[in-house]
Design a protein around this nucleic acid. Sequence first.
DNA 1: CCTTATTTTTAGACTTGTCTAAAAATTAAT
DNA 2: ATTAATTTTTAGACAAGTCTAAAAATAAGG
Lengths: 218, 218
Amino acid sequence: MHSVSEENYIKAIHYLQDDNNLVSTNEIAHQMNTKASSVTDMLKKLSDKGLAEYVPYKGSRLTVEGVDCANQIVRKHRLWEVFLVEKLHFSWDEVHDVAEQLEHIQSRKLIDELDEHLGFPKQDPHGDPIPDRDGNYEKITQIPLAQMQKGDKGRLTNVLDSSSSFLKYLDRHHIEIGSSIEVLEREDFDDSFLIQTDKKKLHLSIQIAQNLFLKTSS
Amino acid sequence: MHSVSEENYIKAIHYLQDDNNLVSTNEIAHQMNTKASSVTDMLKKLSDKGLAEYVPYKGSRLTVEGVDCANQIVRKHRLWEVFLVEKLHFSWDEVHDVAEQLEHIQSRKLIDELDEHLGFPKQDPHGDPIPDRDGNYEKITQIPLAQMQKGDKGRLTNVLDSSSSFLKYLDRHHIEIGSSIEVLEREDFDDSFLIQTDKKKLHLSIQIAQNLFLKTSS
DNA sequence: CCTTATTTTTAGACTTGTCTAAAAATTAAT
DNA sequence: ATTAATTTTTAGACAAGTCTAAAAATAAGG
């Protein structure tokens, strides 16, 4: 079908594109750790294949077909992440690199059976939604902890940063997807937080708070 | 580590090599559906990497390191096959192509955890032995049905041909790994067999009998 | 043992995906 | 609005892996 390289570009464009704005060549290059000239070449190719629209000097956006392809890759990536964590004792900071390889395996039956094997999960271990076999997924309305006020409560639904160091930090403080969090205090001078988690009180910097997304309950 | 292409060559040489004879360039080319000139190029590369010995115009054989690598690939391939059949409802004629992709995923932890998840199976769905994490596997002493005589009994331990058509044939007649088989008659003029399986009597041609391996019990 | 047939290797070309360096287009700034 | 800075594209090169066609080495046959 599509090469691993093509799929990685599609994924990157999809990740960078919100709504239907054009994504610039440089943004893609930066995201993929590659050079702008390589991106230009690939954009032409994706355009020829009908997977992306390419406007020279302006940028590119995925076509409907491209978005569909991206959703299938995301579906595969996230289902494999669930598998690794639920069935193979991986911790959520270890899954990304392996899922990155597994997401390129081509077999419709494989992924649909895997989905069933896992009980049709709706979210991956980081709280991101998993598209169903038609590419549809439910958007959860969630806000960053950083935008919450004193007294607000919610449950952790998503973490933005997936770096190992960040996830290990959360593990150390027993914060996980589903944890209930309440804002006890906001410090004015450095925007830091004092929160109440399931188990204990905790100080969080604004940098941390920007990476925690919650579904508010009150 | 090694590229997918390198791994495929290593697998092919391993498959063709019995004992420590040299495998010819043409044999490899035929096995891999490629051209002899491509094989020559790769043999030089594998030789440079210390994975194979290459004697120009004579052929090649795997080094100890090459054999080790081959065993790890075989381990991965067969564990994935077990996973597909046991957990994801694949039938044994559907697993090969997907396992062929999955065997190239690089992650020691992944494969060791998968092994545990599956209960450390000793054989894959076709009856082939699965190497453990050190590359060791148990050789079962088995003989082709074709070499058995009237009155001999055994259990099916392995099938040589893995083609979909052959495996579907076995399915239709309810013959699977572990099935007990007894030779009731051998026909002289065409070498065909009349056998007794768990459920019924069945005629088998010599071509079929050459692809069925049994562990004899009496 | 010399000639023919087969196998294997070399040489050169092509594809995919990448890079560097230079040219062209766009954007920003005075 | 014209120059300067930035972004993007082109042109040419390279690496991996493959192919075809021709050359070299080996094996086979009389």
